[in-house]
Design a protein around this nucleic acid. Structure first.
Lengths: 179, 179
DNA sequence: CCCCCCATGTAACATGTTACATGATTGA
DNA sequence: TCAATCATGTAACATGTTACATGGGGGG
């Protein structure tokens, strides 16, 4: 079982809610703001094939048809999805992939305990705080080599991160209220 | 001359400030938050080769060495960069690429008039406002099919956009003051 | 002299996009 | 029956990543 791509996990997360055909998943990507994944069949069908071959997903019907038949997540698939959700947040150069983290958060609601969801938010908020500090520090370090436009762009990054940090607090509050 | 990738434009934008060697550009991508582009030589050197062949970039020295020699943008390169900056903002499914727009904005400071920079910000802010409306509308349309986690993720998107819209106002203000 | 950094490049691989092909089903 | 939509897939292409190869030059 090779490493899965973000698209693979997005598909797994969808199937973890309810069985769907490949076509229906394409529709979801087309008509909802989900993650920002594309609806190209050239990406989705090969990905589904790989997931089937890895045993993370299986035809949900009696298997006689195979066409027009919805796919369902398997226990292995659920385990893989869960492992992904619990994996440590990796921050690459260029900052945190916020929309990717939002996609992950969406799926935590279906698979993790409330406590684990809270932990996810806490980890995310800490990472964001660190990113803010790093960005502000690098701004000060290079202040004299940066143009005013550069500084504004950095400011935009800071505002994005701060909005994300605020959201973390909001999400935590919403979760604890809805308990 | 084929269509240029975002990385190509990022390189052009850097060279529009000052001549640099490929290696130095790699360093910039490694050590600054610029755009979030990678520093892989396997991406940068082929891209520079293409830019050289298209005549958008040229060796800045006397041309005898070729190695360790900085590259400089040509008039054609400047024109291509300017055209890119002035091109209408295209919004694909999945929303606006905010960090891409920030990269663009950075380069407008070196190449466009103050009036054009303001127009850029205005267009961006309008696009963001439209994106906010679309996202809020889609949230209402699908409210009953969405989980509470889905709703929170949408909320995160809205907060991101609102932060970006705020930034547009801030940037406009900063530009007009620094006039 | 040897190692590390400068500087450029290439090869293999992964991933996704566009565009097309195929056939079944459904409604006018 | 004809068109549209459902449903799946493939082929060609673009793009970028990882990892490696190459060679010059400076400092210990």
């Amino acid at each position: 079982m090779k490493t899965l791509t973000p698209l693979n996990y997005a598909l797994l997360g969808l199937l973890n809610r309810t069985p769907l055909t490949g076509y229906e998943m394409m529709q979801v990507f087309e008509t909802t703001p989900l993650g920002g994944y594309s609806s190209s069949p050239g990406a989705i069908y090969p990905a589904l094939k790989k997931l089937r071959q890895s045993g993370l997903v299986a035809v949900s019907g009696d298997g006689t048809s195979g066409r027009g038949d919805a796919l369902a997540i398997t226990p292995d698939g659920k385990a893989a999805l869960k492992a992904w959700l619990l994996a440590p947040l990796l921050v690459k150069a260029g900052g945190i992939d916020l929309s990717g983290q939002m996609l992950k958060f969406t799926f935590t609601g279906d698979l993790l305990t409330r406590r684990q969801q809270m932990a996810f938010l806490n980890r995310l908020e800490k990472a964001i705080t660190r990113a803010i500090d790093a960005l502000a520090a690098s701004r000060e370090r290079m202040r004299d080599t940066l143009t005013s436009h550069d500084l504004l762009a950095v400011e935009a990054g800071l505002l994005q991160y701060r909005a994300a940090a605020d959201w973390c607090a909001l999400a935590r509050q919403t979760l604890s209220k809805g308990k």
